[in-house]
Write a protein that binds this DNA or RNA. Structure first.
Lengths: 200, 200, 200, 200
DNA sequence: TATTAAGCGAGACGGTACGTCTCGTCTTAGA
DNA sequence: TCTAAGACGAGACGTACCGTCTCGCTTAATA
């Protein structure tokens, strides 16, 4: 997350050198941050990490695998619990947008999505990841159901899907600097609906 | 739309030969359909279209531009008007998913999104396109407001954003074979909300 | 033969640019001269010639092919005609040794021989070249036969083979700085024989 | 001498395990025989010998050193003594050609020569070896001088140089299947000379 | 009618990156 | 202290595309 290794690394015997793996991951992150997905190549990472290309290919079978590994190591956004679902979801989205804006996470995630359109492994990893995140985000809804705020027949992951989709598409179309008011309007639609006369 | 041109094309004087442009677009579509975004290269399109690379670059400044052009030529999904917003939106999403499943459109759109993560022009085009589509989809909501079904303070494009985001993410994560019931549950959340006690 | 091209080269249309080919040959020669066969790589030649690797592979199928091309372009040693075979051959060998010492030719020829031990094409090219050179060198002997200096039943290429072999092995074992007297002793053995009592 | 060791070898304590060295030499020979110089790599030898690369590098400083070691272990061609120099030399060359054809020796020697064009150590080893062989071959000439067959002022190693050069170049240019008559013609030129009127 | 201007297919150009191979060095665990 | 094992940084291999360039041609519009 911090800096490129300068000291020369060597083999530490017939087993993987974690320092090399770390240096490669950090270099990958740095390259993504500085040059974006367009400039992200195994050669660039190897140069930056002062590692040999075969060392990278020894541990990550493809560009996609490295990308996903780097992405998985990102800190996750937490799961607010204010006692009010709308506030929870607004706070969640705002935290997520901030996280994407202020760390390499947003850039990396966009890259993973792009890579998933080309690479089968990345596609699978992305699908799995999305499912996992829906479950996680759905916990906010589940808590709201438990406290009687939300109807019992609502599927938490369905709501999480709506919220996450909103976030992803904002990331992909460069709209993650959205202010809280705008976010709240969208969340409120999901929570309260948009009908003039609420359905029975 | 159907076949690759075999007859040799020549210059038709000091102006663009539409036959070449068409052959290139058709070749691009065929390459995308057969080899996917991974196999989509200007060289492959030129080979397939029996065109010179400069002929492509003369009319499309980049791979992304060609991709977007091809995408724009796809038939659009229509805008249902049943007199009930929920039905309109469900029908819209189901039509869109079917369109993406049964024509090259889904494959092409995924490619445009991927390309937009690398290419600035594609990113701009995608943003513009998304805005345009939101306006279009928002018309369903606007009609519902006009007939008093939806509150007047609801921003139609905000609702369209929620719906389109749901669709995009399903495309990107391989979930466009969703059945109508599942789609309806999500749309109903947006329309009616999910609260146990509807807000005043 | 002289310098590396500095000016930027471009395509000159859908046909080979001789300037590129020349620059590559010259770069190959320069690399061989400076770094020897050990440092001779397609990458090094491409860097030196400011050419892309594919441009080299477009015209020379292998390292060996480039090597042989460069070697074939070397100026050949001439064919003395003093009226005395011994003098002709001594002068020929001394010229050859000087040529090998003072131009890249010696280094290149050693490389071709080495490459021929690995590469089938180089082996064939070397065999052909050797045969051609034997014919050429044999002309000195043929002239000696014509003027009655040498027996009519002597095969000129056989003598050329002996002389050329002597030269090659001296090149391969680093003995091309041999003085004229030593060369003459060897040539004299071939011309006059070494018997105490000359055979009838 | 023929097959790859299968049994696992272990260290035999703080001293060299001759079984490893033998296995490596045999593997090197087998690799040379089967894949030729082109396929001869330290990695290939290590794989074949089931030895670690450092074990090879511990005992042979370079690929060239291993090559030379393997070559030195080859049986040498003997030194005929028929009482007639021409017969001795013809027999010697024919034995040498047969040896090169029928054992890995020819392939190995070609490899040493190729390696010597790149590797300084191999070059030195080759030079030394050539000198040694000239001395050895020269003994046939020395015996001829002793019995008065050859002039006393003839330098035996010079004659050996001519004969060995002839042999080497035939090896390098794929002409070691030469029949005895052809060999004899060349040897006869060295022994008797080629002049129409023998020099006084 | 002759000239000119631009589009056309073609493909070479200098580059960059790919994923694989071997080099020679290093460190380990176990005998 | 030697062994097998194999990771390491380095860098070359030959291939695929990138986007640009120039060619020789064809044709329509202009002069």
């Amino acid at each position: 997350m911090t800096e490129t290794a300068d000291e020369t690394r060597r083999s530490i015997g017939a087993r993987r050198n974690p320092a090399s793996a770390d240096a490669i991951r950090e270099a990958a992150q740095a390259v993504l941050l500085e040059a974006g997905y367009a400039g992200f190549s195994i050669e660039a990472v190897a140069r930056r990490a002062r590692a040999g290309k075969p060392t990278i290919y020894r541990w990550w079978p493809s560009k996609a695998a490295l990308l996903i590994d780097v992405y998985q190591r990102q800190k996750r956004v937490d799961n607010p619990d204010t006692g009010n679902l709308e506030d929870d979801l607004v706070q969640f989205l705002q935290s997520l947008f901030r996280h994407w804006r202020e760390t390499p996470a947003g850039s990396i995630f966009r890259s993973v999505i792009a890579e998933a359109q080309t690479d089968e492994a990345a596609a699978t990893a992305l699908t799995d990841y999305a499912q996992d995140r829906r479950a996680h985000t759905g916990r906010m809804v589940a808590r709201a159901i438990e406290r009687g705020e939300v109807r019992a027949d609502v599927e938490p992951t369905m709501v999480a899907d709506l919220v996450a989709s909103y976030a992803w598409v904002h990331l992909l179309t460069g709209r993650i600097d959205e202010d809280e008011a705008t976010t709240r309007v969208a969340i409120r639609a999901i929570v309260r609906g948009i009908l003039a006369t609420p359905a029975k």
